[in-house]
Nucleic acid binder design. Sequence first.
DNA 1: CCAAAACATGAATAATCTTTCGCATTTGAT
DNA 2: ATCAAATGCGAAAGATTATTCATGTTTTGG
Lengths: 219, 219
Amino acid sequence: MPEKSFIVKGIRVQTSSGLRRAPQQARGAQRIARILDAAAEVIGEVGYDAATTVMIAAKAHTAIGSLYQFFPNKEAIVQGLLERYRDELRAIFDAIITPDLATLPLPALLDRIIDPLLEFELGRHGFKALFVGMHMSRELAAATRQLTDEVVGRVAGIFQARMPTLPREMAQRYSVIVVQIVKAFLGLADAPIMTRAELVAELKALLLRYLIPLEGASG
Amino acid sequence: MPEKSFIVKGIRVQTSSGLRRAPQQARGAQRIARILDAAAEVIGEVGYDAATTVMIAAKAHTAIGSLYQFFPNKEAIVQGLLERYRDELRAIFDAIITPDLATLPLPALLDRIIDPLLEFELGRHGFKALFVGMHMSRELAAATRQLTDEVVGRVAGIFQARMPTLPREMAQRYSVIVVQIVKAFLGLADAPIMTRAELVAELKALLLRYLIPLEGASG
DNA sequence: CCAAAACATGAATAATCTTTCGCATTTGAT
DNA sequence: ATCAAATGCGAAAGATTATTCATGTTTTGG
């Protein structure tokens, strides 16, 4: 199902589903965008549970009532944020995935995929909390799983393109593991023991050593 | 500093610090133990934030007032739980670490360390949530970091025993990464895509491939 | 310029938790 | 058996949030 999305006076609003009502004017659309920005920041700072709607409204320079003008509840805000991230991730993968990926040497492939993803994460404060965080409400867990599934599916597709003999289920399995490893390294990002650059190098070395035997057998 | 611990009528109580007062009778000590058990279960089910003191008291078959008889607040309960886990982990590592570890083949080493740890995790419902969870209150984050540091320190020690030429800082760094990877796989434990046995096998394969070059260079 | 629709506001309400406190019951020592 | 200390109890107070709503302001189409 293609995602509905509003364009209101030049401002793109893609939070089609969870909104209480669609904005009719530019200021409404801008406010929604500002609220999502603010939510990303607050969630990035304190996590989903500790993030309050008042904090989000304040950071968006908006009255609490205005927030509820468009979002029916706190969860809908996060849903909107997740939709935004999902769309952005799709665009990144669409740019990453080209025919030459199937035959690219493994080290180059890792650079090609990991670098844009890490850059994306670096610029979205709330992303890590929602992508690697555990334990949320049932519905929210489902929504965040969608984000992960998006990434896992793309990576599995790349595996299958490179290793046509690899069963779909195996591709899925290794993709789940690889994505989880990337998540784990994201969680290490503010450990004072290494720089981000060292961390990225180590991540790539790890994935390289893990995947070489796989590609050797099925490539 | 050695940990204080009470023995009250045969029941061991090691929650020395965070308690409002030390139990004087056996029933008090038992109640504390039951509350910690209940907290572990509830936190394992819904996570720390969603776990309420009323839920914990109910699962411990205790009135909410009794809970506060010993624990000054919700956080102290988790502190107590973490102390319990830390002590248990210490005991496990004390049993694991023997002189022959330094020269054991790497695959056997992985079995030796990972199997007991995973078995420990399997039997403690709240452990995973506190060990791999993100984003808690400042103090709680510090307390859970202690748990991780305990494990990281032990693993780093093993690295140094096997690779005497490896600088302490490098041992620490690889230990942090390895422990984070183990955490990541714990987070995969209820993914329906593989059995736990397959997951453990993949974890060991991954760590083996990651660590072989390291030991080859410094061993 | 005007009226209707859209949007903004924040005090008030409502729901959810944590924590307290006065009183009841149990235990251990004499 | 009796008393003081320890423990148990749960309704109610206190805190924190999410959410609503009555009312004021801005925008838009005509």
